[in-house]
Each structure stands twice: as structure tokens, then as C-alpha cells.
Design a binder for these strands. Structure first.
Lengths: 223, 223
DNA sequence: GTCTATAAACAGATAGAC
DNA sequence: GTCTATCTGTTTATAGAC
């Protein structure tokens, strides 16, 4: 049943299971958990209502499974750079790596439509945490933030575990995440009909200018 | 009936109406619109279920009324500085005013428990706009952002209506708003049990350092 | 494993007594 | 204006046929 390793041909049950997770992810992210009915999820997954109880044991446990799927998918891609790549000792190299990481995160958050479902699901959990939040926090958010703290510290000479460094990194993340959360506000105020590549570039450039200005200021203060 | 001016003693109907708005504001902000039942709202307001239909015409229109109440309440306090106070021509004064505005906004967003219900309600609308979002955007968000753009422009010499200025101001707002939205993430990562005055001070100081560094960098580039 | 039928609880809206 | 009773539809969960 696809439980021994990832090489078996997916069984019918596995396919239904995956379709339910995908549908749940999309709908929970789009409309919220309470506003999404199990009927709607089953319909989108081309499955029946009973299958949610059969495969997961209920609506809430489907949400947990969605969180697990997000963590597993992203870590498959990100683990090499998140856990194994050494933090550069040279400040200039660390700065370049921090810049690159911020750019990647911005691309992920603002533009990339492939992972839009992931981002919306995560943001809802961040704003209103459930058990699914624990899964995402422990499996993803903490690792990303910790990594960024160490790279930032290598670039500035600060202590990677200090409160100041942690908060500083959060302000960087905040600048990026805000444009996803307040997407509608930004579009309306700017008169944009979408946040496409051109708009994302302006946003990322501005945010990175801020980050680099803060980084320089911090380095000058402590030379 | 309290419709002629604001000086009449509030009638029984007015009191029920106000209690329903307050309860709706709180519950919609806390749990979300879909997850909140009209029965729950009526119970919290010490009113009956029928009163929501009678006073507002339904659950959705109660949400609109909540948005209207937020706009009216905040503008009563903020209008003098938002609309009537002239933008300072002197860059140094403008900078000080921008700094003060950012501090106020941070206090409002992060600490102030009096308006916590307002903030949570607004953030939900921002993330998933309904008709209530239109009310808040047009009555509040646009005015605040426009004002900040003009003060920023006076401090830097930039064009207040340029895209660059608008986005720059959004990155400032984003740094502050993020700590409210991702409150749980920050608390968990920092090992904080609350974001009280001491924590808020650290956050605001860090964010303002960033803003001031960006402002200086921008001014040096264009002297 | 899939799918249908149904149970039991709950939703929002409304009619009508007071 | 308040409050109760009730209508109509929807919700999740489950039992059981296939």
C-alpha cells in the first residue's frame, strides 16, 4: 500500500488519500477551515464523503495531514540548504547568502503560484494556531528562522542566539510576508490588478534595500 | 432613538445594537466569521437570536456594521492628525513625525489591549476581504497609508505619490503588523509567554532602527 | 477501499406573541 | 423592541451494502 517505501506504484487508496490532502490544502487555505465543508473537499477530490473519515478519521485530522504534507514536501527540497550546508564564516559571503535567502523567500511568498496553496494554509495556521500549527512550526518555521539567524549573525558579527538577532530576522521576514497577507490592500492602493513578476521585483528590491541598509548600519556600529 | 444626535440617552434598542456589534467584533476577530454562530453572538450580547435580524438584517450585515463601528471609532481619535495636521516641510521634523507615527502604530498593533478586537477583526478582513473590507479600506487604511507616504516623502525628498514611496511605507507597516499576525510564532521562538510592554519595546526599537537606517541610506543616495 | 443512506446536531432566518 | 418557537437547510460522522 505504498507504506514500505516510495517506489511502489500508488494504490487506489493512496491516490484518494493524496487527492483529499490536496483538496483540503487548497480549500482550507482559500476559505478557512470552518467555512470549508467535508462535502466540498470530497467533491474536489473526486471522492465520497465517507473517505475522509476512512482515511484520516475526521475533518480535523485531515487538516493535520495537510500540515504534515506541507512539511514533508518543502523539507525534501530545502533540507540540503537548511540543515546540511555550513554557515559561511566570512561576513561578505554570509551577507550574500542572507540576501539570496531573502530573495528566495520573497519569490516563494509573493510570486510562486506552485506553492500558493501551501503559503495560504500556513498563514491561516499562523494567525489561528491549531495542532496543524505545531506540525508546521516544529517541522519548518523554527528551522528556517534558526538558519537565517545564524547566517545573519555570520554577516554582522552578532550573537546568533540573542533576542536582538531573532527579532531582527523576524522584521526581515515580516517585510516579505506582509505583502502576501495584505495582498489586497497593496493591490488596491497601488492600483495593481495583480502582483506579478514586475511588481514582485519592485517589492523585493525595496525590502532588500532596507535589509542591507540595516545590515550596514549594524556593522558600522560594531566594526 | 439616538438617531437625531449623539446626546440622547441611549434607548434600549441602541444598547442592544451596540452590544451586538461589540460581541460580533470580538467573536469574528477571535474565531472568524464562519466559525462564529449567531446564537453565540446573541448570547454574549445578552440578547436573543432574533435581534440580529431585527437590528441589522442578518449575520453578514452585522459584520458590515462592525466595520463601520471600527472606522467611526478610530477616526474620531485619529482624524485631527490624519487629515487636518499639515505635513511638515522640514525633513528633520518630518522624520521625527514619521518615527512617532510608527511608534504609535506599533503600540496600537502589538501592545494595546483596548483595541485588540479591532486589530484582529481588521486583519481577518485584510486576509480575506468582504464588503466589510471595503468599508475599512476606504475609511481608514487608505488615509493612514497616504498620510505616511506624505510624511516619508517630506523626510526623504522623494515623490509622495511614487510607487517606490508607497512600497517603502508598506515595508515599514509590514514589519510592525507581522508581529501581531505571527504573534504565536514569535512567542514560541523567543520563549516568551506574552508580548508585553518590555517585549513590545524591543520589537519597536528594532523595527525603528531598520526604518531609520533605510531613511538615512535613502537620503545619502539623494542629497 | 468505495460509496450511499441516514442519524443527530447545528446553522441562519423568520413569524408571531408579548 | 424583545423573545420564543419553529422552519428549512446544512453540517460531520457513521453504519452497512457492495
Amino acid at each position: 500500500m505504498g507504506k514500505r517505501d516510495g517506489q511502489d506504484a500508488p494504490s487506489s487508496g493512496d491516490r484518494t488519500r493524496a487527492a483529499l490532502i490536496e483538496a483540503g490544502l487548497k480549500l482550507f487555505g482559500e476559505k478557512g477551515f470552518a467555512a470549508t465543508s467535508t462535502r466540498e473537499i470530497a467533491a474536489r477530490a473526486n471522492a465520497n464523503i465517507g473517505s475522509i473519515a476512512y482515511h484520516f478519521g475526521g475533518k480535523e485530522k485531515l487538516r493535520d495531514a495537510c500540515a504534515g504534507h506541507i512539511v514533508a514536501t518543502i523539507r525534501t527540497i530545502a533540507d540540503p540548504v537548511l540543515e546540511r550546508l555550513p554557515v559561511p564564516a566570512d561576513p561578505a559571503t554570509a551577507e550574500a547568502q542572507f540576501r539570496l535567502a531573502a530573495e528566495r523567500m520573497a519569490g516563494f511568498m509573493i510570486a510562486g503560484p506552485e506553492v500558493q496553496d501551501f503559503v495560504q494554509f500556513i498563514l491561516r495556521e499562523v494567525q489561528q494556531p491549531t495542532r496543524a500549527f505545531d506540525i508546521i512550526y516544529e517541522g519548518l518555521i523554527e528551522a528556517v528562522h534558526r538558519r537565517l539567524c545564524h547566517v545573519w549573525a555570520a554577516a554582522t558579527g552578532d550573537d546568533p542566539d540573542s533576542e536582538a538577532t531573532s527579532i531582527m530576522v523576524f522584521t526581515v521576514i515580516g517585510q516579505i510576508v506582509y505583502f502576501r497577507i495584505a495582498r489586497e490592500v497593496v493591490m488596491r492602493r497601488m492600483g495593481w490588478r495583480e502582483i506579478g513578476p514586475a511588481q514582485a521585483r519592485l517589492i523585493v528590491t525595496t525590502a532588500l534595500d532596507n535589509v542591507m541598509a540595516a545590515l550596514s548600519a549594524r556593522r558600522e556600529r560594531k566594526p
